[in-house]
Amino acid sequence: MDQAVRELSYAQAIQEAMAIAMETDERVFLMGEDIGVYGGAFQVTGDLVERFGADRVIDTPISELGGAGVAVGAAVTGLRPIFEFQFSDFATLAMEQIVNQAAKMRYMLGGAVSVPVVMRFPAGSGTGAAAQHSQSLEAWLGHVPGLKVIQPSTPYDAKGMLLAAVADPDPVMIFEHKLLYKTKGPVPEGYYTVPIGKAAIRREGRDLTIVATSIMVHKALDAAKTLEAEGIDVEVVDLRTIRPMDKETVIESVKKTSRLLCVYEGVKTLGVGAEVSAMIAESEAFDFLDAPIVRLGGAETPIPYNPELEKATVPQVPDILAAARSLATGSR
């Protein structure tokens, strides 16, 4: 039977996924700050507390380290917590539990346990919230073996990947760009999953590959439309998962186009683009490159408050256009 497809916002898609997870699995519950009557800082949990009650939609005190630890403890003993950080920036307060405990517990115990915890992180800039509420810290967690780190870019993926995360036996960290919450897209009703660890080709092209993450996928697609009119045929790869990374899809794309541009919001240096570039440099795709790889990432600064500075801090469509044009014509 075909499932009806509706237009939902990214936030609604996540909410629906959490509702389905709770309906179908008694072990699933939500924890986070102000996720109950308040509905979550970005209204992602919304009215779920009314449907599922306060003991499955649990408001925690403002205790990120403790809260994350409680989620890890519940996960390792048989429950399926979905833990919402109010802002991804507050992952820094919980690093101990995420990095030293959740990520390593299975390994340290020689495989005797697993830690099926899901953590959700509203991330990114563009809201005027300045340096401590606008960061993109996914690469931090991407550096830790034991974690899986995903960045869905569409409502469809947001739902399917969250359900895949809940079903996953290992800790899955989901970075959700705040500016995506209100974007809409088709979402089927009911249960489905989108695999973790698999990139998506959002647009096929011959001249140039853009590997993008999260909101940058949309900016890349915008740029690709303009470039098409200029005769530059861009392939856009939505990485979707940064750990484990789908090397094959990226390598195949670069082998086809021979040019690679990485676009991501996190700070450029030592970020996702560095990994993608190095991975290509180490692969058979290296011999196919017709020009040096180009990275567009966040500027080497905290996110400023002033809105013009804030915009200038992260890649925008004109930056992608400029980089793609010079890359398309550049040579080794």
Partner: peptide, 27 residues
């Protein structure tokens, strides 16, 4: 006070001894 980099949540005036507001609860 912060040259436009901080905004309301990071308001400070070191000259009068205010080491700064904070975006992090408990920070």
């Amino acid at each position: 006070y912060c040259r436009g980099r901080g905004g309301s949540m990071h308001i400070a005036d070191v000259t009068t001894g205010n080491l700064g507001a904070n975006g992090i609860v408990g920070g």
